[in-house]
Each structure stands twice: as C-alpha cells, then as structure tokens.
C-alpha cells in the first residue's frame, strides 16, 4: 500500500515535471542571427508578403497610414479577443528589440522576456521564414514611423490567461514540415514560401480543430470567419475554379473574375499583396493551383 502511494506520487511528480519542461518557452538557437545583416529594401517585400500591416496598422488606417503600426485590431476568437499590439519602432512598440528578439517572436513565438506569445501572432507560419528574411524585415521595420499608442492587453478568460498553456499548444500545432511537401517548380516553391512562411493565408482559409490549431488535412478548404460572422471561402483547387491568372489579378486589384471586388479583411490583404512584384502574386497563384 505504502509502495503504491510512493509509486503514484512519483509518477505524478514526474508527469508534472515533464509537463513543465515540455511547456517551457524555447527560443531560437543563440547563433541563428549571428552574422546575418538586414537589407531594408528586401525587407519591404517581406513586410508586405507577411501582411504585418493587415493586423498591426490602426483598424481604420488607409493609404500610407498603414505603415504606422500602432496596433488595435481585434481578433475575436472562440478563446477570447486578441488585440494586435503596437509594433512600431518606438518605446511603446518594439523599438528596443534586437534582430534576435524579432527572430524569437516570429520563429519560436517567444517574447524578449522569454515568455510564450499567443498564436494570434501566426508564428506557426512565420517559423518557416529564413533568418535572412527576419533580418531584412527588421531593417525595414526600423525605418517606419513611430506610434505612441499604448498596446492594449488581450481580453482572454481563464485558463487561456496562463501563457504556459501555449507551450503545450505549440507541441501539437507547430509543424516544421511544409503542407505542400513537393514543390515541382521554382515558381511553386516560391509560392509555397510566400503562403506557408509569410502570407499566412491558411490562418483564415483553413478550418481549425478543437485546440484552435489549423487542421492541415483540410488545408485552404474554407472556414468560419475567425473574427466576425460569415464564412471565409475555400481556395483549394477543388473549390476555387479561377485560373492562375485570375487569382494573381485578384491579389493585385481585388477584382474577381466576375468583376465583383474583395470585401472585408481581404481588402487589406489585397492592398498588401498589390505591393509585391507580379511574379510573386503569380507564384502564390501557382502554389494554390498545385495544392491537392
């Protein structure tokens, strides 16, 4: 009896320790960014392809004002409201971050103070970014205007307030593998990088499982709107019959093949995609066409 009790307590303790260890925030390796210097001009492409402004600009911002990354956009999720923070290069934003800090946030979902960030920052996508792109992005973001807007805290109910829980979520939902395993042409490979490492299209266009993670077996097959009513359309080849040219043109102008126009949050996405080279929009279209 006494032996059994000792056994159970030991197992309980080991499980707790394992859980504690498994859920700890793990930053990127210390030398990842060593010797990588950023180029602001290349970083601008990363910035627009990554869609940073779509959430981090003030919700009403238009035109060049989207470069003021004041934050404030609300993602109303089933787990609570996530409010995009100020990420402008100033004291209220991330002006004091190093390039390594940015790498930790984007590639590992870890803050400069070593805590888990919530996956409302789509690091399950950004984890696929190259170190060079992170450095370039940092160089570009450092050139942007400063906003003195104060970041608002997320509005989350218990138990989602416990950041350690995010560590377990990451174990289940951070996959180092591409969804499209085989990219047959350089164009599709570029498109895969733009979508799966930067554009995070899947965050809205792919349904989620019970943990709130993306259901990768139903990649791009449409989903309920994560922040509002209505549905986000499916964009896999089975459901989206547009030609590659139509998709690319939509990303440039917002015009559908019927010359209806993009609406809702997608207008912001199109505004960002319009800043890319046509070859990149074509690559995204080629990638979507290559999906199963």
């Amino acid at each position: 009896m006494r032996k059994l009790l000792v056994f159970l307590v030991t197992v309980g303790l080991l499980t707790a320790i394992a859980g504690w260890v498994a859920s700890r925030p793990v930053p990127v390796s210390a030398d990842l960014m060593a010797g990588v210097s950023g180029d602001a001009a290349r970083g601008e492409t990363v910035f627009w392809a990554g869609g940073c402004a779509n959430c981090h600009a003030a919700p009403e911002a238009k035109g060049d004002d989207v470069l003021i990354l004041a934050g404030g956009y609300r993602i109303e999720s089933p787990f609570g409201a996530f409010i995009a923070p100020n990420i402008s290069p100033g004291p209220e934003g991330i002006g004091n971050w190093t390039t390594e800090d940015l790498a930790n946030a984007l590639l590992a979902g870890v803050s400069p103070s070593g805590k888990h960030l919530y996956p409302s920052l789509p690091y399950t996508t950004y984890m696929h970014m190259t170190a060079q792109d992170v450095a370039d992005l940092k160089a570009f973001m450092d050139t942007l205007p400063v906003s003195d807007a104060v970041s608002q805290p997320h509005e989350l109910p218990f138990p989602f307030t416990i950041r350690r829980g995010v560590g377990l979520w990451k174990l289940v939902n951070m996959s180092p593998n591409w969804v499209l395993a085989n990219a047959d042409t350089p164009e599709i490979e570029r498109g895969r990088y733009l979508v799966e490492a930067l554009g995070h299209c899947a965050e809205c266009h792919t349904p989620r499982d019970a943990t709130g993670g993306l259901n990768r077996s139903r990649w791009m097959q449409g989903a309920p709107n994560p922040s509002g009513d209505g549905k986000i359309p499916a964009i896999d080849p089975v459901n989206l019959k547009w030609s590659a040219g139509d998709i690319s043109y939509y990303l440039e102008t917002g015009f559908t093949p019927d010359y209806d126009s993009a609406g809702g949050q997608m207008t912001k996405v199109v505004a960002s995609m319009a800043k890319l080279e046509k070859s990149d929009r074509d690559a995204i279209a080629a990638y979507l066409k290559a999906l199963p």
Binding site: N225, D229, G230, F255, S261, A262, G263, G264, Q265, T267
Partner: peptide
C-alpha cells in the same frame, strides 16, 4: 470598390 466593401458589405 474595396473601400466600401471592406466595411459596409457583409463578408462573403
């Protein structure tokens, strides 16, 4: 077109 459809038309 998007400047109206973003805010004033129900999402698809």
């Amino acid at each position: 077109c998007g400047s109206c459809h973003e805010t004033y038309r129900k999402a698809d």
